[in-house]
Design a binder for these strands. Structure first.
Lengths: 228, 228
DNA sequence: GATTATTATTAGCTAAACCTAAATTTATGT
DNA sequence: ACATAAATTTAGGTTTAGCTAATAATAATC
């Protein structure tokens, strides 16, 4: 019965590859080494797997040229991202996890939960549109809101901006920002941008000013706020 | 550095074997075919795995004689049982799962969650002592309350008994009992025990009487209630 | 107590995902 | 353009957990 096959669960490492390509390349393509580095797996293993993923119709792959996601591959990747972000939201909101602990747990759980679980969890959480970092949560139908936010470092002086998300690359960075209330949703006014050293000075809603250096201005993303 | 090794996570199938032996044998021993049947795995695979589990010090195993859990094996099995039952409680209590759906999801999740997750979940649930079936939840330290309940079919006439648990072997059975309010915690008076066909007639707190046949009297477990 | 049946074990294979080392292809620098 | 560096692939090997088919041990039956 051709065409009858239902989407059977993909092995957990396959999903990791898809997510990696999605994260690295978005709609473009990712190289073997990039994927290798992202997943901490030997390049040779990646070559192998990319071949298999192509057979499965999940990626487009050309030798020596890298891989990009097909429609189905992207769908699958976004399904995992949705799970991941909903699970993180749950761990932080209901189980009292801290930023530090959340990621690994979510990484393991996202491969074990069913769609059923995911949707019931979404319900319990009130169908949030963003996770605690401020990253958008893909919808159940695979749609992902376009992201028009930009790094704080690239915003113009004098603008009123709202923190849209905080990248989760480094734990210390998250903690530093968290302590100062520089979390998604916060409204800021950009007071100064020093192009020599990249330091950005901002004033928050309470009138406090903060000077944020290099890495921080790349971790904090903002959106222009309608003048008011 | 001998003796320094910490308990690294066991692969998920290892846990399944330990749980199977625990469920089948309790403190006694389980045969190759029993385990094979319980896990839906070929007997030869079981023989193999039992050998490996012995090497790891998790079971005691004698060729042609079956396997029993060592202290460490039992500890590990109970850790999984604790996870399983807490997760089931959560799925039923917070995510609105039905009896039918709960088991498989819990089976997958119990291998993915950390101890950290488990304990935080226990906290969220208010450290329940029993799962929704009435089965005792092993404590975090590996202790399991001794179970002195007995099948309804073996209880004496005239006794006041309380349903302690309902075995989860068959979904239809669970549904049938659930509809009639025959769930853990319910108080019953045993009105008649017909030894010819094994039918037991009970009266519940509301004065309703129920005639329960063969399989049902084995699925419902009760404890004698202090005379009142 | 010998024969048959049941239960277990051994031997030999498979598939996924990984690895290392060697060979090859693409990219870079002068 | 040509040599060298960097990235990628190929070849061959490992581990885990399963499988089948053939053999051996234990148990049951007459």
């Amino acid at each position: 019965m051709p065409g009858t096959e239902t989407t059977r669960p993909l092995s957990s490492s396959i999903g990791d590859y898809l997510k990696a390509i999605w994260a690295l390349a978005g709609t473009g393509s990712a190289s073997t080494t990039e994927v290798s580095g992202h997943l901490s797996v030997a390049p040779a293993s990646v070559t192998n797997m990319l071949g298999r993923l192509q057979e499965m119709g999940l990626v487009r792959y050309e030798r020596y040229r890298g891989a990009s996601l097909t429609g189905r591959g992207r769908e699958e990747a976004l399904r995992l991202v949705r799970r991941h972000r909903l699970i993180e939201s749950f761990l932080l909101g209901h189980l009292g996890y801290s930023w530090q602990e959340v990621h690994d747990e979510a990484e393991r759980l996202e491969h074990a939960v069913s769609d059923e679980f995911t949707e019931r969890l979404a319900e319990l959480l009130g169908h949030p549109a963003h996770d605690p970092h401020g990253d958008p949560i893909p919808a159940a139908d695979g749609t992902l809101e376009p992201d028009d936010s930009l790094p704080l470092g690239e915003a113009g002086v004098g603008g009123r901006v709202r923190i849209s998300k905080v990248s989760d690359e480094s734990i210390p960075v998250l903690d530093y920002l968290g302590e100062r209330g520089l979390v998604p949703g916060r409204l800021l006014i950009i007071r100064e941008v020093r192009h020599l050293d990249g330091v950005v000075t901002v004033e928050d809603e309470g009138g406090e000013t903060h000077a944020l250096g290099g890495p921080l201005t790349r971790a904090v993303f903002v959106r222009e706020e309608a003048a008011g």
